[in-house]
Design a protein around this nucleic acid. Structure first.
Lengths: 218, 218
DNA sequence: CCTAACCTGGACTGTGAGGTCCATTCCTTT
DNA sequence: AAAGGAATGGACCTCACAGTCCAGGTTAGG
């Protein structure tokens, strides 16, 4: 009992200080964010009106501005952050342990399986091609995503060097960028041609390129 | 004299039947198209209003609709076609004769030199990231661009196979797609990070990958 | 159970932008 | 040089859409 009371009190303080959102509130906010992300991924940010979001979520204008007081720009940024987070999260935990060739090939397969159902509306394509690139905040977000992604890939490659699986003289950062570019390019071309094949090919070529620097542990 | 008269007559007929544009007319149309392309490349199609184009070209609303009766959609498509044309034309004549390793390396350098000054506003980036992808006509245009580009690359690789410079068992179409994805991905990442380096790295990796299939003529 | 804060509905407003219209000027052809 | 059509200027219209406001309901916490 006392524990419950304490919990309630803390919760109250937390709400007051941090976000002032009740359980129902966060649910509604999440609903708006999800629908916005979906709509934007399909139709683009410019073609997605707040009314579209409103209808899709069964909410009202006032709620949109209640949860995103700065309006559409804030909603867009929040939706973009969500997409960026998903791009990396969808690859975990594999992404954080690319320490063996086996792991790389599992990851390759994961990427393909992940994007197979709807390459046109995948999180990466949505982020890089449906959001307004000119918004400096969104631009920074995308740039940051690529940075983190590259770091994860390079980190795995570094571990492989330590294990003697990869030529210690190769620049892991460069290799990571090459792999990243292959994915991004494959997705972009695949989005345009509505086909998964370009991504398959590009990713396979990138992996082949990695194997070029393979070594056997002593 | 008579020749002149005949020429004039033909010109009149041509104008009547084909486009009804005088010399001044085509100049103005081109001016509008150029400015529109520039503005869209920098700010995106959605953020470029007809008034922006009007001001940039010193024209009037009526002229925009005189030359593009179907309005903004038509102007956008025409501007996109222009960009797509330039992407390939800027690479010629090298693009059509990628028959030797030397040619490939010259082409690689050309791409880099071409995109170095302003990777953010290069024709390719503009086309694939600033135009509305959801427009089916523009989508088809971009898809077509990739198709032609791939065909040119594969054609060169085919010639190299014929010359014994490339392993005859490799799939030239696949290789072409891999190179294309590297470029597209490099440009996209470079645009996000405002750097040419990703394109350099990706393109070099793609070329390295090509060399993997190199053979020496008998 | 009460009260204060959060949550929600829906009407309202302002404006930016696409598109229309017509008068006027300029050019081309005969 | 006259006439017909193209080129141009600019006012005007319409409307979608971002953003505002307030009243009423719902929930949390004491």
């Amino acid at each position: 009992m006392e524990w419950t009371v304490k919990s309630r009190t803390l919760r109250s303080i937390w709400r007051t200080l941090v976000s002032m959102l009740t359980r129902k509130g966060v649910a509604t906010r999440a609903r708006i964010l999800d629908a916005a992300g979906e709509l934007i991924a399909q139709n683009g940010a410019a073609e997605t009106s707040l009314d579209d979001v409103r209808v899709a979520t069964g909410t009202s204008k006032s709620q949109l501005f209640h949860y995103f007081p700065e309006g559409k720009a804030q909603l867009l940024l929040a939706a973009a952050e969500e997409q960026a987070r998903k791009v990396l999260d969808d690859q975990r935990p594999l992404l954080d342990h690319l320490d063996t060739w086996e792991a790389w090939h599992q990851w390759q397969q994961l990427i393909l399986d992940m994007y197979a159902p709807k390459i046109e509306y995948c999180h990466l394509a949505a982020l890089t091609s449906q959001f307004p690139k000119n918004d400096p905040q969104i631009g920074a977000l995308i740039s940051g995503l690529f940075g983190q992604w590259q770091e994860r890939l390079a980190h795995g490659l570094g571990n492989m060097q330590a294990r003697g699986l990869l030529d210690p003289n190769t620049d892991t950062e460069r290799l990571a960028v090459a792999v990243l570019a292959a994915i991004q390019g494959g997705v972009a071309i695949g989005q345009a041609t509505k086909s998964l094949t370009p991504l398959e090919i590009a990713l396979q070529a990138a992996l082949d390129h990695l194997h070029t620097h393979e070594t056997v542990p002593a």
